[in-house]
């Protein structure tokens, strides 16, 4: 049958991609300390165990602070950059936007290492805000990618019409521009939040004595009896990530529908 080979390839590819993730909840609910088959029975005690790990709670708190701050910062910077790049022509625009988008393809370990050297070089102590700095750096290109699409699908004459009808530049932005790009802003916030929450390398290099959740998880892998609890934690994180990304995409598509624009591609 034609395409049979391709079909097998596709199935194998998907199994390889998702089987490990599917195993997370399987072992999170398995009533045994050792991660191996056969399964021993159903339990929720690993989830209960999560509640009794104060260092985990601290790491979670750090991660949330970092993720919220860097997603807000990245989105605000993204709004400025996207608005400027879609509305105005200025010398060196192409090169400038390229440089801003570069962290998207730069190896994170390079970014993390160079940031660490600079910070230590000028004698700044590592703390939560240094991670926020690093995460803002890597989230901003994503924010710009999403927001540029939102600003581009916005008909320029909408803003002119509001201006023409008596609104100032500022109130036009508030009454027309902002509501119409709001789905893009929400989508940018959610995606930046997810990226920051999951990010390991920069957090590992720059966190100092304040580990984030991924760094904490990595450190716990050395203790075999903690592994089922980590599996439970992983299950929660996967569920949350999927939820966030789906919400982000929902808002992006709703925004397109609202302005009647064509779908020019997104992350999902």
């Amino acid at each position: 049958m034609k395409g049979g080979g391709l079909r097998i390839y596709t199935i194998l590819y998907l199994v390889f991609l998702y089987a490990p993730i599917v195993l997370l909840p399987v072992f999170a609910f398995n009533d045994a300390t050792i991660i191996s088959f056969p399964l021993r029975g159903f339990t929720t005690r690993w989830f209960a165990a999560l509640a009794e790990l104060p260092t985990l709670h601290q790491a979670l708190k750090n991660s949330l602070i970092i993720a919220v701050s860097s997603s807000v910062l990245a989105t605000v910077l993204g709004v400025f950059a996207s608005r400027a790049s879609t509305r105005y022509e200025f010398p060196g625009k192409g090169g400038l936007m390229g440089l801003i988008m570069l962290p998207l393809v730069l190896p994170e370990v390079i970014v993390a290492m160079s940031l660490l050297m600079v910070l230590l070089g000028i004698g700044i102590d590592l703390a939560i805000w240094t991670v926020i700095l690093g995460h803002t750096l890597i989230c901003t290109p994503f924010a710009i990618a999403i927001l540029s699409a939102a600003f581009q699908s916005l008909d320029r004459s909408l803003e002119e019409a509001a201006w023409d009808l008596g609104e100032t530049r500022l109130s036009t932005f508030r009454l027309i521009t902002l509501p119409l790009v709001m789905p893009g802003i929400i989508s940018s916030l959610l995606i930046s939040f997810t990226i920051s929450l999951d990010e390991f390398i920069i957090a590992f290099f720059l966190a100092g004595s304040e580990p984030t959740l991924p760094v904490y998880i990595y450190s716990q892998l050395r203790f075999p009896k903690q592994i089922p609890a980590i599996m439970a934690l992983g299950t929660i994180l996967v569920a949350l990530s999927v939820l966030l990304l789906t919400t982000a995409e929902y808002f992006r598509r709703r925004g397109l529908k609202k302005t009647g624009a064509k779908d020019t591609g997104g992350f999902l």
């Binding site: 008909d155 004459s157 909408l158 002119e160 019409a161 509001a162 023409d164 027309i176 509501p179 119409l180 609202k258 302005t259 009647g260």
Partner: peptide, 11 residues
């Protein structure tokens, strides 16, 4: 002004 694209506020 009446714009070529009409510029009706879609929201």
């Amino acid at each position: 002004m009446v714009f070529q694209s009409y510029a009706i506020f879609p929201h």
